[in-house]
């Protein structure tokens, strides 16, 4: 198994406030790792740090392979003038490539089909429900053919059918060797899939692993 993510003694601070404190973890290909914890325990901060959106105050972060990140829906500008297909296609962007290829477009169509949102492709994102937008974000992440997938609360507000679609897709990509790290505050999400590891955070530290 290839190690896709290694985090050692990571510390992330907001000013004087230490949000993530001395966290070490690793995720290998084909593993499904959950991060749980109460609100404010540092889960999202840790994920944003791993995604490269926050700088570690100390410690080391090593990522190996293509990474896709599914942020919380609440971070999105719901009124942005864009259609679902345009948003999904952005998942194929990479440094050094300015235009979409035919292959990129095919992958976007395939991801939308798999997540059951192909019928929404020409809809403006402002007309979508929170659950539909979560599927859009997951389709966008899948387009990038990730070897490491980070998901920040992807199940919040999802109905049972959407849960089933989400975990069926996760099951497929894990079987194909993708490493998945998923943040959730709802422990019932753990019932949907076999986890390789469950990490519980409390006040920025790993409490149980």
């Amino acid at each position: 198994m290839t190690e896709r993510l290694r985090l050692e003694h990571a510390v992330i601070k907001y000013g004087d406030n230490t949000a993530v404190n001395d966290v070490s973890l690793s995720v290998c290909s084909g593993e499904m790792v959950f991060i749980t914890g109460a609100n404010g325990s540092g889960k999202s901060t840790l994920t944003r740090g791993i995604a490269g959106l926050l700088t570690l105050s100390s410690g080391t972060l090593e990522r190996n392979g293509r990474m896709s990140y599914v942020p919380q829906v609440e971070e999105a500008d719901r009124n942005f003038p864009a259609r679902v297909r345009e948003i999904v296609l952005t998942g194929t962007q990479r440094p050094g490539r300015l235009f979409y290829s035919r292959d990129d477009r095919l992958r976007a169509e395939g991801a939308m089909r798999e997540l059951g949102i192909d019928g929404l492709a020409d809809r403006e994102i402002r007309t979508l429900s929170g659950g539909q937008l979560r599927r859009v974000f997951l389709a966008r992440a899948l387009c990038g053919e990730p070897e490491l997938l980070l998901l920040d609360e992807p199940c919040a507000g999802l109905d049972a059918e959407s849960h089933e679609v989400l975990f069926s897709v996760l099951g497929r990509i894990i079987a194909e060797g993708c490493a998945v790290l998923m943040v959730t505050h709802d422990v019932s999400d753990l019932d949907w899939i076999n986890a390789s590891r469950i990490i519980t955070l409390s006040e920025g530290r790993i409490k149980i692993s």
Partner: peptide, 23 residues
Amino acid sequence: ILFYNRLFLITYNEDYARSLGIN
């Protein structure tokens, strides 16, 4: 014209663009 796709992504969600390694 050249950077339309990038400008679209960065205007919509700069954080996501950074997570893809885009400068």
